[in-house]
Design a binder for these strands. Structure first.
Lengths: 240, 240
DNA sequence: TCAAAAGTGTTCCTGGTACACCCATGC
DNA sequence: GCATGGGTGTACCAGGAACACTTTTGA
């Protein structure tokens, strides 16, 4: 476009009744190479809670849905896109933001940590992965939001195949077993785990093996999303 | 107080950025004597959707949480209080309200329909129970909200003991079996159902029987909430 | 040759499912 | 005495849990 458009930008917006502000916050889970569960935090540059760590998030624009706002903030603050994202819960305690009445709609995301190193993030935003059992003090009520998300993840991973979202596309049976052990916090029997997950027929056995490992290479598998949708239609229900 | 306080009531509220309006809506489920599942709807007195049926709900005040707003609207519009109430989902489609950008946080409630006849409701509000398989056309996106609530109820009733909220405090085993058959939409085997639910040790066998029935009177039971909390603590998980 | 993880079957037991008849009560 | 729902036990089968050794590979 060679012409700019001049628009009148109002400096303020007026309503008959007071309105709370609406934000979204995202709890982004990732599984690192050592198989500890991690979450992304952002260091706040501005008050309130300046310098403290917080969940990525921000205000919802009038021309976007909550989910669109979550995707936008995720991309802006962490560079993450195209991942599993689901609404978690809406938090509305009266004093959760010291400045103003703010209601926040929390989302949680599952990403394959190996694909995102958070180094190339824009401007001066400081984002980092933290192990979930060693979090710093969080701003606002973000600890409560995080705990709600962790409980949701632990509950949901047992009866919906969302765990695969934390792994690379191609993974070994041991990887997925360790994932379940990490998230659920208990050891599982190797033979029983393999029997059960293979019997579901949701894993595509690939003709590929692990490389660069200092021991016998394991076979790679892939989650068969199409098959899952088809089975779910027929009343099948995932359970581990 | 013998003196009134004069306060300046502003006629408007101004913000630097535009804000969506925030409402809550409630999907109230009840089970009637003929054991069909019902939901409460309110007939709208004002545009938009004037005359159409809608879920009870309204704007969230600045000095209340979302849950408080839900309780308030529930009481004002239906006379219901002290029931099971849980947050469902937050809906934010851009055009869900034709007048303005409105985001709504939906709640769902489970009530013992026998206790609420909706006759004594305040002023001119027209509230009524509708069988869920015979709903009228609903205002806004309330059909989608209702369906989300029904799916949640169907899912949750299988792994948390919330079904009892739809029954009177004292109930027969047949009542709860019919409840499950109604909500899940399939017949269950009487002997197996009784074995399973009694084995959980969550039902208190009372020394009372049904009265005024034209057949052998059934024993009454009561859900043991304290026992459930205790068992849950120890890792027990309800499942039917 | 050693270390490290991959891969593989069987036995036992629990819990799910299928199934039919007598009992108590009010009309 | 009949209609209506209440109440009860057993046999079979499937799936979950416990359990240990051999194989492959790279260092």
């Amino acid at each position: 476009m060679s012409f700019s458009t001049l628009v009148f930008l109002p400096m303020s917006y007026t309503y008959k009744f007071p309105r709370p502000g609406i934000t979204i916050d995202c709890v982004v889970f990732g599984l690192d190479e050592l198989d500890s569960l991690k979450v992304i935090l952002i260091q706040r540059k501005l008050p309130p809670f300046q310098g403290q760590w917080a969940l990525p998030g921000g205000f919802v624009h009038l021309d976007e849905t909550l989910e669109e706002a979550a995707w936008r903030e995720l991309l802006e603050e962490t560079g993450i896109q195209d991942v599993f994202l689901e609404q978690l819960y809406t938090f509305s305690a009266l004093n959760r933001d010291p400045r103003d009445r703010i209601i926040t709609v929390a989302y949680y995301a599952l990403v394959n940590l190996g694909e995102y190193h958070l180094k190339a993030t824009t401007d001066a935003i400081d984002a980092a992965w933290f192990a979930i059992d060693n979090l710093p003090k969080l701003a606002f009520d973000h600890l409560e939001i995080f705990q709600t998300a962790l409980n949701r993840l632990r509950g949901k991973i047992r009866y919906e195949p969302i765990g695969f979202e934390l792994l690379p596309k191609k993974f070994t049976l041991s990887q997925i077993q360790k994932l379940y052990e990490t998230v659920l916090g208990k050891k599982l029997d190797k033979r029983n785990f393999r029997k059960k997950i293979l019997k579901m027929n949701l894993l595509l056995e690939l003709d590929e093996m692990q490389t660069d490992v200092a021991h016998r290479a394991a076979r790679l598998y892939q989650f068969d999303e199409a098959k899952y949708q088809q089975l779910k239609q027929q009343g099948f229900s995932f359970e581990l």
